[in-house]
Design a protein around this nucleic acid. Structure first.
Lengths: 241, 241
DNA sequence: ATGGATTTGTCCGTATGTATA
DNA sequence: CTATACATACGGACAAATCCA
């Protein structure tokens, strides 16, 4: 087997520095308007060359997170990140209401397919039985904040795609099937790098980190009605339990 | 401002491919013993050169996740990942019990400090009032699975560090202060790259992704008793709500 | 047992990105 | 801005191991 003597882990130093500074900002250690340490100090702190720090700051500046001013220093510009609440009654639109002035959901595609083992298990149906698969994404104030794939049992929701296109709301669409209330049965959260498709759709830099949530919703009787795999850019969203 | 025409985002392609394959494995799409698609197929799927795919596979092989066999293919070796359940009554040791045969917590350091704005807000105390700060990490079966920083109000828990060293259990230590039960008030989850210190302590490759949880625990009366910032390697742990 | 197809392993070279000084 | 060293990514060619008709 090839011997790997790699120590960089495939993530450039400037990227790790940019992430660390961004975290200080969205995490509250640095407030809006604060001046960052000088490039020389940052270089010392991260054991990096000043050019490498400049590269990190340039990326953050392009994102609007910081702004450099000649002779004065680099300042925090925008420290906002959206919070997505997860609980028993998790509703996408309600959860983000008040955090963004506009919130749009885009349906990318839908199709019928046979449930994979994972999907069947989540929905508690026979493997390879028919499921409706929906691909979508959503934007807050024009910025994409999530990419999601949803599976529903075909037997119960044969025309879910058509109905959600009409109602533009998951809650109302379920209501049209007589499901007045539904609850979150489980949410599994992991994280990984965005793939090529997600990178393009969400307008992210390749290598951006995604929070991945696998959620199963159940009706009032506890029967699974949907299995959703949602991907949120970690730099724009956090999940709150 | 410098114009950036970067398209790699600072994360190497082989790293993104390795992450994607690893996710398929720990996520259950590929089971232990399964054969991966051939290098040529993977290269096609990720729009990459076969050499780049080989680099990704070599890293996964070194981690013991896959193993390549000349002439036969590459196979899934080890698909395990721990799940950490988060809920109203979140207990670290209980949550992981049964998933690992040994579970050890290491206390790295502790000190007294003045609460920062973020810590004061979380614990609902006056800014700059005294807090106990604990640094620790934990291992499951000898593999490090978390790095955590915990703050507690000094007024109520002046000798928390000494007591937890004696009891080796958060639940029992709280009990020694007369707190028979406590509950999780909120958990905020985000993700980022590991910094240098975390990389070393957790034995990760630089650039590894961490799931970051900020949790506030409260006593029976709803008064905050601790604020913990835990970091879990996304490749080893997932959070389940 | 042989040949050919498949699949991983190794070698060559070239261009660009990363990081330091 | 220069220069240097190394990592990343691509492309092609061929060897070595495995499998199957």
């Amino acid at each position: 087997m090839t011997v790997l003597k790699d120590v960089s882990g495939g993530v450039a130093l400037w990227r790790r520095i940019a992430d660390a500074i961004r975290l200080d900002i969205v995490g509250g250690k640095l407030a809006e308007g604060d001046r960052l340490p000088t490039e020389a100090v940052l270089a010392e702190r991260f054991s990096a060359n000043r050019h490498t720090v400049r590269r990190a700051l340039a990326v953050l500046a392009q994102d609007g997170v910081v702004g450099a001013e000649q002779g004065r220093g680099t300042f925090v510009r925008n420290a906002r990140r959206l919070s997505y609440p997860i609980g028993k009654r998790t509703r996408f639109r309600e959860g983000l209401k008040g955090q963004a002035s506009s919130l749009t959901s885009v349906s990318l595609s839908n199709r019928l397919e046979n449930a994979t083992a994972a999907v069947a298990k989540a929905l508690d149906i026979r493997s390879a039985s028919k499921v409706v698969r929906l691909e979508g994404m959503s934007l807050a104030d024009g910025v994409s904040i999530s990419r999601s794939t949803t599976w529903l049992p075909y037997r119960r929701f044969p025309d879910f795609a058509e109905r959600i296109a009409r109602f533009a709301s998951t809650t109302e669409t379920f209501a049209s099937y007589g499901i007045e209330d539904y609850a979150r049965a489980s949410t599994r959260i992991s994280a990984r790098h965005a793939d090529v498709e997600e990178t393009k759709l969400l307008g992210l830099a390749p290598g951006a980190i995604l929070l991945v949530s696998e959620a199963v919703d159940v009706d009032a009787e506890g029967v699974p009605i949907s299995y959703a795999l949602s991907r949120f850019p970690a730099e724009r969203m956090e999940l709150v339990v």
